[in-house]
Design a protein around this nucleic acid. Structure first.
Lengths: 348, 348
DNA sequence: TTGAAAGCGATACCAG
DNA sequence: CTGGTATCGCTTTCAA
């Protein structure tokens, strides 16, 4: 059956950019006429070994010609470790405060020669998340919020993570914890309103689900602040929409409140506008306090009283990570890092 | 020499959490009393092979006892490919528009069984970035802005990336491009002001460096819009600070302008406030137009006219990526995806 | 049904 | 100064 011998070309459409195999260090070695070991020495500038200048040039030329790029997975497999710091990618729009903090952290870590990777963890939950992260064998994990429990921390450490840092409301067993206690935000806001003589205080609770991690602790702090006083708290559920704010404003007078802590500056702006449109005067008829100290609070009229939140310096956190990586023996430390300050302006 | 047989314990300080070696599938196999192959079959539910129920249980039990987590790098090295989609981590605070888009994209990609990783690329520039990304051997790369040039795209493709998608002002050779042409934003804003009878128009240029990628194209669009009209454009550099806005407002009357396109809603708010504090009336003395259609624009008084920007659906982009991955032969396509619309409110 | 062994890509030791 | 080679952890034929 001689006709069967006619070879069918592998690529029937050779005009397409043929799916060429990715060049490896072996290819570079072959082209340069040296061994793979030599290629490795040259490309990594290994100081323990001296390679002749002509050879170096041939290797570099070959690498460039092939467009060789080393394979990170292979390298870290061989090395037995990586310098990857893993953080979960944010799932809710972050305010400038947070994004500034993370940029600084990222920058500082890369100065220390770490590679920062944000890992999207949509759909996973609980300890599955920790397992998914552990598969990447990061040298360190920085996890804001309540992503990680003690179990997750243990999984990560068993998988070689030398530092696990959480930024959360309370200490997590086995991990370094920077305590970001948002209760203090509510507490400060309410305390301020009390000194202004307010007693019947509303607390805005955003209906956006991703925000409950912040809104609940803030509310808890509010309750703590009214303990042992004659003031009363009223929860005010509010979606971040004009209509919702208008509806709340419409029934405002029946609520009989003389102040409101609006969760943050953005909700404060939303609510203030609706209240003003209803003819309510701020601060005569009621006081309004926001939080986060965003620029927009200064641009409102009246200017918005707010709780300024100072996050720790990204550089400090980066150094904590680095220290923990280099001395894995140290006891995980826990410390509060939210420094809060009421900025009194005109709305209260 | 019998005494030599006395073993020195590996961990001399057993109180510290001993730096135990990370368990591998070989350890699981040993503990379960089976071969590594069997472990792999069981843990991956390989359907081609039938493993007896008792064996499966023993393997699972051993894995759980050791806290075994597979090593992603080893796996993808062996497999020869990964399902990692790489995106650069944002370096500037992103507005809710963008962050919503990326969340949707991330979610859609993970539904398609891709792993989304955001890679921080601080300090690197140009083709070094592409090389750093290529080391991770992603199956696809999605890069907003002008991160990637044709050279970078080529590097990534040679390293096995089967899809490279850029979101940028103009097509990039070799990559799928979703054209996000911000010139249209400026053009729409100015066109609107012209129909309102304005002729001497200021254009705010943010001084924050990360924003020039947007502000320059927007300005270019402004120029295009005044082509062939009797209108004139004045660039107004402005930092995002109250003092800068106040200074600009103080010399406003000498500028002799009857309208301003304020780059976006946030700068518009900043500037409007300063101008109002100077006693200027909006829109009687001048018109103001923002962009991005943020919530705050609706809350200002007068309500802010703005250019609404509609990004493509994250799901569509995810499908584009998936198609490109599965059929790497297809010609990279280029299409505009920014749909713009002037929302006329009270400030113009 | 299970096990032995090859091999993915890069590196580092040890000979030559 | 350069080259063979074992090795990292895992998957997947091929044999038993």
């Amino acid at each position: 059956m001689p006709f069967v011998m006619v070879q069918i070309p592998k690529q029937s459409a050779p005009s397409l950019p043929a799916q060429r195999p990715v060049p490896t260090s072996a290819d570079v070695a072959r082209l340069a006429g040296v061994s793979r070991a030599t290629v490795s020495y040259v490309l990594n500038n290994t100081s323990a070994v001296r390679i002749s200048e002509p050879t170096r040039r041939r290797v570099h030329a070959a690498a460039k010609e092939l467009g060789y790029v080393p394979h990170a997975a292979a390298r870290s497999l061989r090395a037995g470790h990586s310098r990857m710091v893993l953080m979960p990618a944010p799932t809710v729009p972050v305010n400038p405060l947070y994004s500034g903090f993370f940029n600084e952290l990222q920058w500082a870590l890369s100065r220390l020669d770490y590679t920062v990777v944000q890992y999207g963890s949509v759909g996973l939950s609980g300890d599955d998340i920790a397992r998914a992260w552990a598969e990447l064998r990061p040298v360190a994990v920085v996890a804001p919020g309540a992503w990680l429990g003690p179990e997750g921390v243990a999984v990560l450490k068993r998988s070689g993570a030398r530092a696990v840092v959480t930024l959360s409301p309370e200490a997590v067993e086995g991990a370094h914890t920077l305590i970001l206690d948002h209760r203090g935000v509510g507490e400060n806001a309410i305390a301020h309103l009390l000194t202004r003589g307010r007693r019947r205080i509303g607390v805005v609770m955003p209906q956006e689900s991703g925000l409950s991690a912040f809104s609940k602790p803030r509310l808890e702090g509010c309750h703590r602040a009214v303990q042992g006083t004659d003031a009363s708290l009223t929860e005010l559920p509010l979606a971040y929409e004009e209509e919702a704010a208008a509806a709340l404003a419409a029934r405002w007078r029946s609520l009989d409140l003389d102040a409101v802590f609006a969760y943050n500056d953005e909700y404060a702006m939303l609510l203030m506008r609706a209240l003003q449109d209803e003819g309510l005067r701020i601060p005569e008829d009621l006081s309004v306090v926001g939080a986060d100290d965003l620029m927009l609070g200064r641009l409102l009229r009246p200017r918005l009283t707010t709780v300024h939140i100072q996050l720790p310096a990204g550089r400090d956190l980066a150094e904590l990570v680095d220290r923990a990586v280099r001395e894995p023996g140290v006891i995980p430390e826990t410390r509060g890092v939210l420094s809060l300050r009421v900025v009194h302006r005109e709305s209260s």
